[in-house]
Every structure is written in structure tokens, then in C-alpha cells.
Amino acid sequence: MFADYTSSELLSIFAMQGFAGLILFSVFVLMALGLAIIFGQMGVINMAHGEFMILGAYMTYLTSHVFENYLPASIYGMYFFIAMVIAFFAAGALGALVEWAMIRHLYKRPLDTLLATWGLSLILQQLYRTIFGTREVGVTLPDWLMGSYALSDSIEVPINGLFVMALTVVVTVGVWLMMQKSRLGKQTRAVVQNRPMAAAVGINTAKVDRLTFALGCGIAGIAGSAFTMIGSTGPTSGQLYIVDTFLVVVFGGASSLLGTVASAFTISQAQSTMEFFLSGSMAKVLTLLVVVGILMLRPQGLFSLKMRK
């Protein structure tokens, strides 16, 4: 399959596909980070995660709409940062509400959480459809995100992609620092490792659960915000990514953030590189098959904490 291309052509193909893979990687990481926190730390399967992401995307769309129509054009370039904050808090607030109303009653029944959150995702999808219509919506990118940056004659990188990647790095580092250093992060890890003992030393475990869930959903909101930079948003966009994202989290080793990032990188690069040579669907089938195959051989994922059960 390489015979038809010269070596420099191959190099630029790999570079361009690698870059496309990096954008996919960014979306995977942003979505998977929230899931890794919720699933890896709390053991809760949130099938509505994609819908939380789409909520962030719709919030970004609304914010850009407000900036475009009601505020001076000079500050339009700034809308994204405000939208991101709104998306984070909107998704986080909905997450806290869902945890309070639904999830906290089901902590002892993880498989049932899966079904209940699937129901939630159906309701949210239909809600989006009712409010925003079935057509996909997109935002107008501000000028400074338009265009691309030419590395060489045949290799160009789009600036919005670069921005999304930078955002991913910032969010990932932020989440990692928070889990390692902050009070909430330490409390979360304590609750995960030993719930009765954590409660015994005075941690309000119910509150930690709610905040952790809200945080995971909030990060999904940010993911949705970033998603608007590179694609348009429809009511069912979230569902397209949910299985992939779960595989990313499981493949990486559920409780390891580093593993999540590494597996997102592997999966997205493999997929986008193969996409060029095979059809899109076969690339996806092969990637998923390899991931499932590896998971069958190594069920604990790439990186796993050595912990006594």
C-alpha cells in the first residue's frame, strides 16, 4: 500500500494524518478525562457523558451567538474563554443535580447506573432536539483562530487544531495537579481507596462524590466547548464518541490519568493513520478490534495501579 507514494510524500502524509490524529486525540483526552474521573475514581458508568459534552458545545454556541449579535465586534475574539467557563459550570451543575437525584441511589449497583444514565442520555438528546432543532449548529470562529500555519510546502497545520491541543494540555495538567495536590483531589483519592476509613477521618464522602461527579461532567462541558472549534454540533453528536471514549478509559487502565492520555494517543493515531490507507470504517473496525483484543489479553488496561482488592 506504500508503493504508490514517494518517500517525501509518505512523510507528509504521515505528518498530516498524525496531526489530524492529534486533534482527534485532543477530543478523546478531554472527553476521557471526565470519564476517567467518574468511572476510574468512582466506578460509575455515565452513558450520558456524551450529552454533557454536547451541553458544553451548545452553551458555547449560545455564547458565541450572544457575542455576535449583542456585543461589539471587537471583543468577539474573546467569546471562547467566557463560553468555556459557562460550559464548565453548566455541565457541572447538571452533573451535580443528576448525582443528587439519581446516581447516589445507585452506587451499589453499577450496572443499573449504566441503564439509568442511558435513559438520561435519551432524554437529554430529545431535549436538545426540541430546543435547538435537529440540524447541526456551528460557531463562527474568531479571526485569530482561522487559517493555517505552513510548516513546509506540503505540510500545513490549522490554527484551531493547535489551539484545541494547547487547551487539552492545559486542562490535562490542571486536572492532574488538582487530583494530586488539591484538597478535593486528595479527598477523592482517599474515598476511592478506602471509603469507610475516609469517612472515619472526617471526610464527607457524599459531598466528595457529588463534587467529583460534577467535576467530571464539567470537564466534559469543556470538551464540548473545544469540540465546537473543529466540528459542528447536533443532538446526537455525543453518542458517536461515547463507546470510543469508554474504550479509551478502559484501555488506559481505569484509574490512571496517565494511562488515559497514553491510550487516547495510541487509539487516535492508529485510527487516523489507517484512515488514509483504508476506508474510514475499516480503520475504525481494525482499531477497535485491536483494542478489544488487547483488552482480552490484558483486562486491567495499559497502566494499572497495583492495589490490593
Partner: peptide, 30 residues
């Protein structure tokens, strides 16, 4: 055999079977 011999169960099994469903659908359509 692949899953249960390695004592994979619960939510992991659910996610893997879901992925298998996704793979087969994409394969059939593709």
C-alpha cells in the same frame, strides 16, 4: 472464554460487549 477466564466481569464486560456491537455494525455497513 477470553473475558471470563481472565475474571473480567461487571461493567468491563458490558463495555466490551458494547464495543463488539459497534464493531460488527461498522463492519456490516462498511
Amino acid at each position: 472464554v477470553a473475558m471470563f477466564k481472565r475474571r473480567v466481569g461487571g461493567v468491563y464486560f458490558a463495555i466490551i460487549t458494547q464495543a463488539v456491537a459497534a464493531i460488527l455494525t461498522i463492519l456490516i455497513i462498511g
